[in-house]
Write a protein that binds this DNA or RNA. Sequence first.
DNA 1: AAACGCGATTGACCCAGATCAATTTTGACC
DNA 2: GGTCAAAATTGATCTGGGTCAATCGCGTTT
Lengths: 237, 237
Amino acid sequence: MKPSVITIEPNGHFCSDCAVRASAVCSSLDPAELREFEHLGRRVHFSSGETVFSEEDITTSFYNVLEGVMRLYKLLPDGRRQIVGFALPGDFLGMNLSGRHNFSADAIGAVTVCQFAKAPFGRFIEDRPQLLRRINELAIRELGQARDHMVLLGRRSADEKLAAFLLGWRERLLALKAPSDTVPLPMSRQDIADYLGLTIETVSRTFTKLERHGAIEIIHGGISLLDPARVEALAAA
Amino acid sequence: MKPSVITIEPNGHFCSDCAVRASAVCSSLDPAELREFEHLGRRVHFSSGETVFSEEDITTSFYNVLEGVMRLYKLLPDGRRQIVGFALPGDFLGMNLSGRHNFSADAIGAVTVCQFAKAPFGRFIEDRPQLLRRINELAIRELGQARDHMVLLGRRSADEKLAAFLLGWRERLLALKAPSDTVPLPMSRQDIADYLGLTIETVSRTFTKLERHGAIEIIHGGISLLDPARVEALAAA
DNA sequence: AAACGCGATTGACCCAGATCAATTTTGACC
DNA sequence: GGTCAAAATTGATCTGGGTCAATCGCGTTT
């Protein structure tokens, strides 16, 4: 889909009111710094399915996710896709060494990001090591998640993959909303399959199987964890 | 295997002569800083198969690999293993958020590391943002490698996995030694299998198949790339 | 040099998950 | 509310890679 931007609101907001103020990279900035920081970023909206950046693109911006969900993925030349993660509010995107994004990012549903041009952001960070430290923390956290995901991809069965995915996703949403046994799944079955290294049919069948066994209920736009303990047992296996 | 240390040489070396001086975290330090840094680390040797640290251990040290190869892995409760990477000279280990290593590390063959106690290293880094920046670079590089590996684990066939592994391993060794079509493989077949999400039998059969097709030759302690172009074609697929 | 042990290879068979092929359900738009 | 198109489900069948089981090669020990 084309990367047409729906709305741009330069300076139309305040960092101090920002939903991700406490969790994003900005949590490392004091109020004075925040006021300066405010001028560097602009809110940009993307609608469902739009591509925020592509794998082969030269990196010109960093992004702070404010609202919505994004899929982060890599494609093989023949079209096979691996989703390497889902980005949620508070996530920071765009760090790399090569000068290119090494994965692509699409909006799943409506997404708002705070976009920073690379150069001014780089200058701002220069004399603020605590911001660098925060970015480093986020990178290290992601690295840990990436390693966990390698275990899932390399060594777990389809049932275990699905169960671990549901629990992991619920866990991540915990930071954003009240805990609940109803787990919204804004991404498609194909997205889930490409995240777990499965096919869409296997994802569908496995959901149905879990439902037949009374572990979950498939509801509109997500699933309900009827028997969390059973799902946890499956995921741990 | 027990973590018995073979040799300890406190201060028995100089950073300025260090083999990894130019590539490791220390490349961000100037000569004066390096002399101070020298007092923080101590060389520690491990022999083949010894565990340097374990997944569940509280992190008390950071490690800079000086010589040798290590396998970094995670275990599932039932014993399934996923190797999340191999560490080579210049690699930096021990960064984490939780206060615990989130993977285990064993020596493959003899290994020498430069070990830093967590607290003094943390203090040293405090007012040296360029060291922090260097650590961040290494973390981002690893994150990119981790994402590539997810694609391999989730979406590639056994043939592609092996071919990509051989080329990737050769590529990494390029930074350490002269380029060559002879690729040493210090790790066991089981290690390769656990890195690629395969079984030892499939690794063995796939090597044999590549050899029958004239793409590689299996030699003692490694393989020889007879037809690198063909292996590249397989890996790209 | 015989015996041992362990990693690697090879063969026979099997099965989890892929592939192929219909439906069925959902949702968006006149 | 009827018409499509896309997403999801379900069924039938196939297969890549796993499992189980020898066997081989080779360095080590006695």
